Amino acid sequence: MNIKISEVANLPTEFGDFRVQVFKEGHKEHLVIFKEKLEEIPIVRVHSECLTGDAIGSLKCDCGAQLEYALIMASQTNGMVIYLRQEGRNIGLLNKINAYALQDIGLNTIEANHQLGFGADERTYEMVTFILHHFNIHKIKLLTNNPDKIRSISDIEIVERIPIIMKSNPHNEAYLNVKKDGMGHLL
């Protein structure tokens, strides 16, 4: 892996005061938001980019609410959020919006991805291990509902999985059911 690593900077937020660092992998720049004094076994959220949910407040998913919850947890517990630049389960923003259009005519999130020639979930998590090793972290409490993250994070001991359950709404209820029933998410 040819990874470029930024300096560490302060990042005051509405959720608390953090430190921030970027890990550049090819054209993707992953962001790590963390408390200066991490716990020995920190709570870690591995969050994949979701511009529509994280920045715009889309109600079609639970991503924005999960990110906010993760930042609050990281602030309260001296933890970390690893923000992976894997928009749309790593199919990119253009294809994600094309998938949204297919969902608008009745396909679910998995069917839409398949219609576009992608798997249900194209994300990878090798970068997580690299980042955690950089911080000399070998054990974590993982804030996730996704069993693929648990299985895919290698060479790191996950001592506890902490659920991250957000309230559903009429716009994301079917989507959350597909995540649970079709992708095995622990909801």
Rank of each mutant, 00 (worst) to 15 (best):
K24N: 07
K24I: 15
E25T: 07
H27Y: 12
H30K: 02
L31D: 01
L31K: 04
I33Y: 06
K35L: 04
K37D: 14
E39S: 15
E40A: 10
P42M: 01
P42S: 04
P42F: 01
I43S: 09
I43C: 06
V44D: 13
R45P: 01
V46W: 07
V46H: 05
H47I: 03
S48R: 05
L51N: 06
L51R: 09
G53L: 06
G53H: 10
D54W: 12
G57Q: 13
G57I: 08
S58A: 10
L59T: 05
L59G: 00
K60E: 14
K60T: 03
K60C: 01
K60L: 06
C63E: 12
G64E: 08
G64H: 06
A65W: 04
A65D: 14
A65T: 05
Q66H: 10
Q66S: 02
L67E: 08
L67C: 06
E68K: 15
L71P: 02
I72T: 14
I72F: 01
M73G: 00
M73K: 14
M73N: 01
A74W: 04
A74D: 08
S75G: 15
S75T: 01
S75Q: 07
Q76F: 00
Q76S: 09
T77R: 07
T77Y: 13
N78H: 09
N78F: 02
G79D: 05
G79M: 02
M80R: 00
M80W: 04
M80K: 01
I82R: 04
I82Y: 08
Y83C: 11
L84P: 07
R85G: 09
R85W: 13
Q86F: 08
Q86H: 11
E87F: 08
I91C: 08
G92W: 06
L93T: 00
L94E: 13
N95F: 11
N95Y: 11
K96D: 09
K96H: 05
K96P: 07
A101V: 09
L102P: 07
L102S: 05
L102H: 10
I105N: 09
G106Y: 10
L107H: 08
L107Y: 14
N108S: 00
N108Y: 01
T109Q: 11
T109N: 13
I110F: 10
I110S: 03
A112S: 08
A112V: 04
A112E: 08
N113R: 02
H114F: 11
Q115M: 11
Q115A: 15
L116S: 04
